[in-house]
Nucleic acid binder design. Structure first.
Lengths: 121, 121
DNA sequence: TGAACGTTTGAACATCTATTCATATATTAA
DNA sequence: TTAATATATGAATAGATGTTCAAACGTTCA
């Protein structure tokens, strides 16, 4: 639901109007922040994180990932589809086997930044 | 649910056992990756992303954030609680007013890395 | 004290999401 | 062709999650 602009959902009298206006002028477009959240949503599931981490080590086929994570190949396949849709992963087909690998080199860096936060307290 | 080790969920014959074993030896502890996913889960909601972005500009009270994002202060309060639990945000009380601000300086960098991905296709 | 205000909290609700299950597709080999 | 295998897909389900609503809490000021 977008802000309909007609009815204000804020039920309080704004205290610091200057601050609010200043920050509002500096906020990126709503769509950008939604895109950003959608990206992090992909990283917000441990199965996908483990898949990405694994593929960061080595290209692997669906079957390999299933074995590595001890999960159904169907579950893995569903997640790989999401990862591919998000342009984080690519695949190539060799006979019956489909090999997946990391598509975006930022994945590593995103992980690193995340760990920096976790490590402190 | 953890891997019960007793029953294998993988329903296929492993194709590249060497690769799987090699990658398995390089995977971080499962708990680390769960923590990482939990962190990104926090970033995976546009309301929280907008709150973090806003607080990155300036300290603000709950009321201000409600006005800025045109959302109920109750909804904002609920999200601020999550952000605080995740150590991303801290607050100080001044009379009736509670001011929130960024606690972790990595927030900015995490956003930056995310944008790097989005920007390319 | 009591009213007003900013904030928090818990329950309810609707929506979203990850996995499972059954089945379909595609390729190889016999 | 048929059988076997790797992968993909759609529907169903259980669980997680974001917002709303009503109410409580805590502080200030008449």
């Amino acid at each position: 639901m977008k802000n309909s602009e007609t009815v204000s959902k804020c039920d309080c009298t704004t205290i610091h109007e200057d601050v609010v206006n200043n920050v509002k002028s500096k906020m990126p477009e709503e769509e950008s922040l939604i895109d950003l959240a959608d990206l992090f949503k992909i990283f917000g599931d441990s199965t996908r994180v483990r898949i990405l981490w694994a593929l960061n080590e080595s290209e692997m086929c669906v079957c390999d990932i299933s074995a590595l994570l001890n999960m159904t190949q169907s579950a893995i396949s569903h997640q790989l589809r999401l990862l591919k849709q998000s342009n984080l992963v690519k695949n190539r087909k060799d006979g019956k086997v489909v090999y997946y690998s990391i598509k975006d080199e930022h994945v590593k860096d995103i992980f690193s930044q995340g760990f920096l936060h976790i490590r402190e307290k």
